[in-house]
């Protein structure tokens, strides 16, 4: 497979407080290894991985899978960068929002990250997966699963307890996010076959109207 040989280039962005394990999470996903080095991310970085996506939705096109080139952006969680990384939000199609299950503060900050996302991402309800990382450290756990689940439900986003160390749920989380993105795109594609007039009203209508049409409304396609 040569470099440009893929169907879609999808960009994800990992975010969350510093030290929650964004870098190791992505490293575990792309290289299936745990990097135990304690290194602070400098600025912003990215990793890449190729995957094949098979649509399994109800009306999904079966047959050959889509070749996806995943670009996973890794941001520095330092406070200094919090306002800066938002500039990169707009370029990402999906978000991996991480917190540290052993740090209550990082969990509390999930709200802040969410509001940042809602404000700066490409639309008001971008696809996000919430990951409570370091779930292997059971004895140091500070956030209950129910609490996290509840918060995720409140935002209507999937939640996973992950461990970059053991690899638990890491690829699942990314796959679910990818699935969300692909579904969203399919919806877009579907609608593009709808006659001109309807498309117009969807594509250019006011947000008020769109917000009425349930969860998939706002990012009207």
């Amino acid at each position: 497979m040569s470099d440009g040989d893929y169907d879609y280039l999808i960009k994800f962005l990992a975010l969350g407080d510093s030290g929650v394990g964004k870098t190791t999470f992505l490293y575990q996903y792309t290289d299936a290894k745990f990097n135990s080095k304690f290194i602070t991310t400098v600025g912003i970085d990215f990793r890449e991985k190729r995957v094949v996506y098979k649509s399994n939705g109800p009306g999904g096109v079966s047959g050959r899978g889509q070749r996806i080139h995943l670009q996973l952006w890794d941001t520095a969680g330092q406070e200094r960068f919090r306002s800066l990384t938002t500039a990169f939000f707009r370029d990402a199609m999906g978000f991996l929002l991480l917190f540290d299950l052993t740090s209550e503060q990082s969990f509390l900050n999930v709200r802040n990250w969410m509001s940042q996302l809602q404000m700066h991402a490409y639309c008001e309800n971008p696809d996000i997966v919430l990951c409570g990382n370091k779930c292997d450290l059971t004895d140091q756990r500070a956030v209950k699963e129910e609490e996290a689940k509840e918060l995720a439900d409140k935002y209507g986003i999937p939640y996973f307890e992950t461990s970059a160390s053991s690899g638990q749920n890491v690829s699942q989380a990314v796959e679910v996010l990818l699935d969300l993105i692909m579904k969203r795109m399919e919806r877009c594609v579907d609608k593009s076959w709808i006659p001109e007039g309807v498309m117009q009203s969807n594509g250019h209508s006011s947000t008020e109207q769109l917000s009425n049409s349930k969860d998939q409304g706002k990012c009207s396609c």
């Binding site: 440009g4 040989d5 893929y6 169907d7 879609y8 280039l9 490409y122 639309c123 969203r184 795109m185 877009c188 594609v189 609608k191 593009s192 498309m199 969807n202 594509g203 250019h204 209508s205 947000t207 769109l210 706002k218 990012c219 009207s220 396609c221």
Partner: peptide
């Protein structure tokens, strides 16, 4: 070698 589905544009218009 399509990098972006065309319909991202519609997504982004609103």
């Amino acid at each position: 070698s399509l990098k972006l589905p065309r319909n991202w544009d519609f997504n982004l218009r609103p």
